[in-house]
Computed example of a mutant assay.
Amino acid sequence: MKKIFSLTLALISFLCFSFIPAKKDEISYKVDPSQTNIVWFGKKVTGIHSGSLKLKEGYVTFKNEKLAGGTFEFDMTSITVSDLKDPNYNSKLVNHLKSDDFFSVEKFPTAKFEITKAKHLGKNQYAVTGKLTIKGITKEVMFPAFVSLSDNGGAVAIITNKFKVDRTQFEIKYGSASFFDSLGDKAIDNDFELEVTQMVARR
């Protein structure tokens, strides 16, 4: 009786798992942080600053050879400034960006982005929609991306155009004329821009 019972359970399990559809058309790729370059641009009345940000880790998913999803974690402690050559001014701005006036890096050392929709526009072009989390606050952002799958399907290359992010949506209000009067030429744009100039992911 025990043998019959065991065989019955085994048969049921086999049948159940047999009818679970295999996701053979879904492939996950791991992003290589060393081959990823993310740059930022921040404008103010008197000029513009720029710098870079490192990726901590990331994954992209393809389905039927098209971008279907992805998750990315950014190392906010890695913020750099590239336009200021004076070491003192450079360090001062980096520390200010890491402070509570801006990204509160000590409290929030990482930021995240999750792709919720990738609309294929033809060839390698996509309109990407996703959830961006900065300082524990999540907002939806959209941007164009160019995604290329290698001929053997073993690697993915991704770049984007510059796209805007409204920092005030993430409670980053320092120097914003929308919240503070009489800033004059010290006002800083609400929008900052991001651009992925290189990103490589492999199976």
Rank of each mutant, 00 (worst) to 15 (best):
K30S: 15
K30F: 09
K30D: 13
D32C: 06
D32M: 12
P33R: 02
P33N: 08
T36G: 04
I38P: 05
I38D: 01
V39P: 03
W40Y: 09
G42H: 04
V45C: 12
G47I: 14
G47L: 06
G47C: 15
I48M: 14
I48Y: 15
H49F: 07
K54V: 03
E57P: 01
G58L: 09
G58R: 05
Y59S: 14
Y59P: 03
Y59L: 10
Y59D: 14
V60E: 12
F62H: 10
K63C: 04
K63Q: 15
E65K: 13
K66Q: 12
G69P: 05
G70P: 03
G70Q: 03
G70M: 04
T71D: 08
F72Q: 01
F72L: 04
E73I: 13
D75K: 01
M76S: 01
S78Y: 00
I79Y: 04
V81T: 08
S82L: 14
D83M: 04
D83C: 07
L84I: 15
P87F: 06
Y89D: 15
Y89H: 13
Y89N: 13
N90H: 11
K92I: 04
L93G: 07
V94E: 09
N95S: 15
H96Q: 03
H96E: 04
L97W: 01
K98M: 04
F103P: 00
S104F: 00
S104A: 07
F108G: 01
P109L: 07
T110F: 14
F113M: 09
E114Q: 11
T116Q: 12
A118D: 07
K119L: 11
H120F: 09
L121I: 07
G122L: 11
G122D: 07
K123I: 14
Y126A: 02
V128W: 01
L132P: 08
L132I: 03
I134G: 00
G136F: 08
I137R: 00
T138A: 09
K139Q: 10
V141W: 00
M142P: 02
P144E: 12
F146E: 05
L149G: 05
S150P: 05
G154S: 12
A155T: 12
A155L: 05
V156T: 05
V156F: 05
I158R: 03
T160Q: 10
T160S: 12
